[in-house]
Design a protein around this nucleic acid. Sequence first.
RNA 1: UGGCGCGUGGCUCAACGGUAGAGCACCUGACUCUGGAUCAGGGGGUUCUAGGUUCGAAUCCUAGCGCGCCAGCCA
Length: 564
Amino acid sequence: MSEPNAETPSPAADHRDFIRDIVAADIASGRIGVPVTRFPPEPNGYLHIGHAKSICLNFGIAAEFGGHCNLRFDDTNPVKEEQEYIDSIQADVRWLGFDWGENLFHASDYFEQLYAWAVHLIREGKAFVDDLSADEIRETRGTLTEPGTDSPHRGRGVEENLDLFARMRAGEFPNGARVLRARIDMASPNINLRDPVLYRIVHASHPRTGDAWCIYPTYDYAHGQSDAIEGVTHSICTLEFDVHRPLYDWLIANLPVPHVPRQYEFARLALTYTVLSKRFLLRLVNDGRVRGWDDPRMPTISGLRRRGFPAEGIRNFATAVGVAKADSTHEVALLEHHVREVLNRTSHRRFGVIDPVKVVITNFPDDLVETMEVVNNPEDPSAGERPVAFGRELWIERDDFMEAPAPKFFRLAPGREVRLRNAYFITCDEVVKDADGRVTELRCTYDPATRGGDSPDGRRPKATLHWVSAAHAIPAEIRLYDYLFTRPDPGADGRDLLEDLNPASEAIVHGYVEPALAEARPGETVQFERLGYFCADPDSRPGALVFNRALTLKDTWAKVQARG
RNA sequence: UGGCGCGUGGCUCAACGGUAGAGCACCUGACUCUGGAUCAGGGGGUUCUAGGUUCGAAUCCUAGCGCGCCAGCCA
């Protein structure tokens, strides 16, 4: 049965994009031999589907062009970062099917070098220690249309700067007392060049360096230099960093780095009915609105995994999505398409009834149990067959019966004959209801000549239903998932995201599954015939099965109903 | 408003000066022991607008319009 695994992604399809074009041109021109890329997550939350796009891009390019991709934690802000996130990120990248080999790095590995280079900048007169407060720096930075003004400490001498910077490191000053700033141009039309902060004082212990440091480099200062140290050739990031590129280049140009990396920007992934904001996802987790970072409704890698989405489907989606510079929002339907494509191909079929109603076959011998051999996966003959018990009393789907059938409803109805998949044709003779008028039992008769599902006289029922023998059925908790949000564009028009949360995103029902599912292991995904794909949840145990609905099958009847 | 980026069918992306294509979505039909899967076909684009260059422009130039990003000691 299909399970999460980490097979190697197939290399270079025929997909091209502007970044791959650049890499190919750089190789052709001899600027580089092979590309070195990096995936640089900040360990301040769990990875989500947007990161998957970046992971597939960076590791994909490296693999396709014979280079390699580093996993580098951008751990420069200890107040937000945690070991739990470091661990989950590695697990998720691996699960997605990528391998960084020996190339696991941390920006914190370079703190000492970064510090030395900062000293270099000071000696060159290109950085200075500023005593201004955060507020004062903001006030003097100018605005989009007005230049900033120089800090009164901008002219501080080299020796004084060196002394102050050393004392910052030594812990002589409280948080926020001083910062190290690059001396560039307070009148630059690019605000990122108005003497940007390079180091700030943060008395906090770091997941890796502990209390060794109380000053930490900013992203702008740490990132490009880390790229240079690692020999990264193509530093690929999202669009919002493009205005930082001049600063990235300035630092590389003004420091004695061993290598010159270049930054390229692409549009981050956005999806309908989805929010990919770590901050908001954190809030959902902290407020207990979901079962955790790996809740099956979460767009996190771990959530998608728990939901039953295979890594291959996510990778194929990432490839299909492409890489470009225009802001864009993909329809979730594209993700679902790729997930269904692999699940259809790989998952075993099983019978599960989610909203059961009893069927009694009145002309079937009381004590007889027959065993049907049922194909595990019609898409994959090597998946074999399994025995399924059939008896006088069955559970079928309540939805598969209508006392007064609607015009295009082909399933069971009084007097109508349908096929029970891989079993017999049955005809409904009588409907039993309780005091409230709710159907409690359907009394049917079967045609013994149709065993296996075919009629010798060529009769062909218009519908085939799934079923489970009541005597053998195993009860199961089934969690039906829907979009986390009710709208394709959550939070649009200034609405609070919480307003758009879908109150029905999780519905728990209790049904019956066939015995073959008794020992389903968490992470195992199967198709419940005619219903959809279901994944055994980590909460599932023998005797207390729990399945998550990953996705329904495409359902044209539902579409017909929706049209009225 | 200053700087930067982007604008091609419902969505996303391709076409890199030579008659605008693909995937998803949507619709129709075939087939079927999953109303699934599969197969075949279909609708849908004044390539943001206006000028210009050229024999020829989605591609080059100019202007305008629209959208996004930047004024954290976040990344």
